[in-house]
């Protein structure tokens, strides 16, 4: 199968969603109006970002019905299908941070500053506290994600500077720093990801030859171990809410260890060969196995 099929699929989805937003202002084809913070599709489907609405609500403002319906649809769909699908399949910043990561690896840079993965929840709490304290959506003045999308749809202004900062941060300061450690929007979608149906399963983990390609490519690689390194009755499902369901592990694995499935499918695939092949030493494969 095509090696980078999920990467290509993700890029297509991200582009398609952006195209839907741009078709109106660019071609007069009004399918989707607004931005990712709140939009209206074909005049009937309202969608509102939970982080944005949460911020307005902590300032003490109660939104209109269309905003509430919009957020209910978004929260419901992501909670059922996969909270952080937003991060890797929708968010325009993903392209920026993925490019930064590509450069980071091309330059063979060290991981750099690695704040704890939970830092994003602290940032989320901080953003909400400042909103509550100041009565205004303070974080939205600097939120690079909404700045970027609004910039693309309505006009960039200096928003590109915020995007460049994220790019530089992810390239030179901290590997997977923004999306993997700090972004509070991703934190909200992560919270929606706790019971989601769509899961990656290391169902063929018996075939794993410890090449480390998946750990290397995964932007949230702490999620893999429990599933991949599990033995016996341990679930092969990646259940950690930080998993963005990007499918990169499926893409890079030469032995087809991973696959998309639902959270009730704990089935393991029996090893393909009865005679386990010679295990390739971790180091040699990991050095040459990726670009």
């Amino acid at each position: 199968m095509l090696r980078n099929r999920f990467l290509l699929l993700r890029r297509s989805t991200q582009l398609l969603i952006l195209a839907l937003f741009l078709a109106g202002p660019w071609a007069g084809l009004w399918i989707v109006k607004g931005t990712l913070t709140s939009s209206m599709t074909l005049g009937i489907l309202p969608l509102t970002d939970p982080f944005l609405l949460l911020q307005t609500m902590v300032t003490g403002h109660w939104p209109e019905l269309s905003g509430l319906i919009g957020v209910a649809i978004v929260v419901g769909s992501y909670a059922v299908f996969g909270g952080r699908l937003y991060c890797s399949w929708v968010c325009p910043m993903n392209v920026v941070t993925d490019s930064a990561n590509w450069l980071h690896r091309r330059l063979d840079l060290k991981k750099g500053w690695q704040p704890k993965r939970q830092t994003r929840y602290w940032v989320l709490a901080m953003a909400l506290l400042v909103a509550a304290g100041s009565g205004s959506l303070a974080y939205e003045l600097v939120n690079p994600v909404t700045l970027l999308h609004r910039g693309l749809v309505f006009g960039m202004g200096f928003a590109w500077a915020a995007v460049v900062m994220v790019f530089l941060f992810d390239t030179f300061v901290s590997r997977h720093g923004w999306c993997g450690h700090l972004c509070p929007m991703g934190a909200v979608y992560g919270l929606l990801n706790t019971k989601s149906l769509l899961r990656v399963s290391a169902r063929n983990r018996e075939d794993c030859d410890d090449c480390m390609d998946c750990f290397d490519v995964c932007p949230e690689n702490h999620v893999i171990s429990p599933a991949l390194r599990g033995r016996g009755d341990d679930t092969p499902l990646i259940l950690n809410r930080d998993c963005t369901s990007c499918g990169r592990c499926i893409d890079v694995c030469d032995l087809d260890v991973f696959g998309f499935t639902h959270r009730f499918d704990t089935q393991l695939i029996q090893p393909t060969s009865i005679e386990p092949g010679p295990r390739v030493p971790v180091t040699t494969k990991a050095m040459g196995g990726h670009k």
């Binding site: 109106g24 009004w30 109006k33 607004g34 931005t35 913070t37 709140s38 939009s39 209206m40 509102t48 970002d49 944005l52 609405l53 911020q55 307005t56 300032t59 003490g60 403002h61 939104p63 905003g67 909103a131 009565g135 205004s136 959506l137 939205e140 909404t146 700045l147 609004r150 910039g151 749809v153 309505f154 006009g155 960039m156 202004g157 200096f158 928003a159 500077a161 915020a162």
Partner: peptide
């Protein structure tokens, strides 16, 4: 505190009166 900066008002203004403040 109430505006989510989505731009839907701008889009529905038939006279292109409204605009969103840029950074």
């Amino acid at each position: 505190g109430a505006c989510v900066r989505c731009g839907l008002c701008v889009r529905d203004c038939p006279y292109d009166t409204l605009k969103l403040a840029e950074l």
